[in-house]
């Protein structure tokens, strides 16, 4: 009992490796490897081709950005289901700005700004209106979508600016630009959530707001900020999407993007009540969803059945997360 030394005495044992990676992440890795095996056996020829792997990378870049910011929101004790709609809105804002100014930089600024503003609206209503986050973002999901349709008059807005299109289609060292952007977001968020004091405070706020307040944390400011961050990240997602498709479409981001982002976050080990969740876990969750999506297409699972699979995955992910929490 007197041994309070923080690090166990040396030795690179299996036990320590497991502890370092975390049992939860290991089960995610196992699931991922299982999926790779299945699709490898069924369609190995296509599945493991460079082109397909890059395809998966492209496919998960937007989802990854959203899943990671969603992790931040869930850790703080909230939920943001308006991210898909915010992506749609920012593609429109970006496309309109570029069409009007012919400047890629201004388009990017507009996307980030509109996303951030939309997130700020979410945060302010949730925090100061004291309304449940799910309800607020369910409402703003429809509102943001509506604004996107009104702004664009329901039309798709094309982008012909090549330097902007490069964000979605260009390559650096053989990897697509969106994948690099995802990696940057992962590193940035990892440092923010796990290493910075501000980030760690979100775990306290989500874990128990009363304790957080009695420890001197200004909870409203933190809450508003995380939704604003979620909006900015949706803006990044929107910019990536607009650059890839070469257009701003009010309808884009409505194909269950929020569902996949939330699923990935819970797969990654978030707790429904907040206070728990990791960036690495969310990234593994994203990889699982990306591989599953791609594999189902390659093995010709009908679209309608893919929807069943995705919905089931969300419920299973939350079930497993809560089950684990109750066991502990």
């Amino acid at each position: 009992m007197s041994d309070r030394s923080a690090t166990a005495p040396g030795g690179f044992t299996l036990h320590r490796v497991v502890e370092r990676i975390g049992i939860h992440n290991i089960s995610l890795l196992t699931a991922l490897i299982g999926l790779l095996l299945i699709f490898g056996i069924l369609r190995g020829d296509v599945f493991f081709s460079t082109r397909n792997l890059l395809n998966i990378g492209m496919g998960v870049a937007i989802l990854g950005v959203l899943a990671i910011s969603q992790t931040g929101v869930i850790v703080s004790g909230g939920l943001d289901i308006s991210v898909g709609a915010m992506v749609g809105l920012t593609t429109v804002a970006t496309a309109m700005t570029i069409q009007a100014t012919e400047m890629a930089g201004l388009g990017i600024v507009a996307g980030l700004l509109v996303g951030g503003l939309a997130g700020l609206v979410n945060g302010i209503i949730i925090t100061y209106g004291r309304i449940n986050a799910v309800i607020v973002t369910l409402g703003t999901m429809a509102i943001f979508r509506g604004v996107a349709f009104i702004l664009s008059d329901g039309q798709s807005i094309s982008i012909f600016n090549d330097s902007f299109r490069w964000i979605g289609t260009g390559r650096i060292l053989g990897l697509p630009a969106p994948v690099w952007i995802l990696l940057a977001v992962v590193v940035g968020f990892y440092i923010f959530l796990h290493k910075s004091i501000v980030g760690r405070n979100y775990y306290a706020i989500g874990g128990n707001p009363i304790v957080a307040r009695l420890s001197g944390l200004n909870i409203p400011r933190y809450r508003v900020a995380i939704y604003a961050v979620s909006g900015v990240m949706a803006g990044i997602g929107g910019i990536l999407l607009a650059a890839r498709t070469g257009s701003g479409q009010p309808i884009s981001g409505s194909d269950g993007l929020e569902l996949e982002a939330i699923t990935a976050a819970f797969l990654g080990g978030c707790a429904m009540q907040g206070g728990r969740g990791t960036v690495v876990g969310a990234l593994l969750g994203v990889a699982i969803i990306g591989v599953l999506n791609n594999g189902m297409i390659l093995t010709a699972v009908p679209t309608f059945y893919q929807m069943l699979a995705k919905g089931t995955l969300l419920i299973v992910a939350v079930f497993l997360a809560e089950f684990r929490l109750n066991k502990a």
């Binding site: 775990y203 306290a204 128990n208 009363i210 304790v211 009695l214 707790a271 206070g275 728990r276």
Partner: peptide, 9 residues
């Protein structure tokens, strides 16, 4: 438990 400690940490 309710007001002082973060039980998950």
């Amino acid at each position: 438990k309710e007001e002082a400690l973060l039980l998950m940490q």
